[in-house]
Each structure stands twice: as C-alpha cells, then as structure tokens.
C-alpha cells in the first residue's frame, strides 16, 4: 500500500470527535463560565468598583476558583467534557499555569515549579504582549504624524 493511500485509510478508519456533543458542551459550559463572570462583574459594579477594576476582579476570582479545582483534580474532569468551553475562557489560562506548576513539584521549586510554570501559557503572554507592542507602536506613530 502506498503511503498516501494508507494515510487516507487512516483518516477513514479513525473515529471522529462526536461534534454534536463537543460543540454543544463547549458552547454550554463556556457560556456558563462567562455568565458566571458576568454575575461577578455585576456584583463588583454594585459595590462601586470601577469598570476596569470590576473586570480585573472577575479574572482574579475565576483564576482562584480554577486553581483550587485544578489542585483537587476536578478541573481536568470538567475540561475533558467542555473542551474549548474551559480552555478559551481565562479558566484555561489559569489551569495552564497551575497544572505544570503542580506537576513539576517533584523536580523542585526553582527548576521544577517556577521554571515550568509558563510552559503552556507562555505563548499566549509572548504573542499577546508582542501584538500589543506592535499595535502600540503603530498607534504612536500614527498619532505622531497625524497629530
């Protein structure tokens, strides 16, 4: 059998993700997390937090909840059902930081926990910050010329 033919066969035989289920779960659980975030936001706004600080507090609370659930081994189980429903919200970022930190405890707190902490979440920070710098630079020079 030719390699190309075989790869087609692999595609045919391998079971596909059950998209009805995964699409629904990601939408539903992702939506619930966001709705919970909104409830928190309204709560902080009610207690006279600034708009910006209320947003930061929402992230803060969601990160703490995720960290605890990760520690107890519960987050993984929810995420296995939710897929993108948990990794797209900030919960995914928090889990991506906490899980390697916990995992590499056996290699010590410096070279294990600390060094491995951003092994999964790092790219998001790197490209997020880089994109913001690019945008900032464009914004700065446009303003310079224009204004």
């Amino acid at each position: 059998m030719e390699k190309k033919e075989y790869l087609n066969l692999v595609k045919k035989i391998s079971p596909k993700a059950n998209i009805k289920k995964t699409f629904l779960c990601s939408f539903f659980i992702g939506g619930l997390i966001c709705a919970f975030g909104e409830a928190l936001r309204q709560f902080f706004l009610y207690f006279r937090f600034e708009e910006e600080d209320a947003g930061a507090m929402v992230s803060f609370v969601l990160i703490i909840i995720t960290a605890i659930l990760t520690g107890f081994g519960i987050f993984r189980k929810i995420a296995n059902i939710a897929g993108a429903g948990t990794f797209v919200p900030i919960t995914g970022f928090a889990n991506a930081v906490v899980s390697p930190a916990l995992e590499f405890k056996t290699e010590g707190f410096i070279l294990g926990v600390a060094a491995k902490m951003f092994v999964i979440a790092g790219p998001v920070i790197v490209y997020g910050i880089f994109a913001s710098i690019v945008y900032g630079a464009i914004f700065y020079f446009v303003k310079l010329i224009g204004g």
């Binding site: 995964t22 699409f23 990601s26 992702g30 966001c34 993108a84 429903g85 919200p89």
Partner: peptide, 10 residues
C-alpha cells in the same frame, strides 16, 4: 456571546 466564542474554539 461567551458560549459562541468558546464554540468557535471547539
């Protein structure tokens, strides 16, 4: 909206 953004990820 949150659910939709997650769904696109999935």
């Amino acid at each position: 909206v949150g659910g939709f953004i997650c769904f696109v990820g999935q």
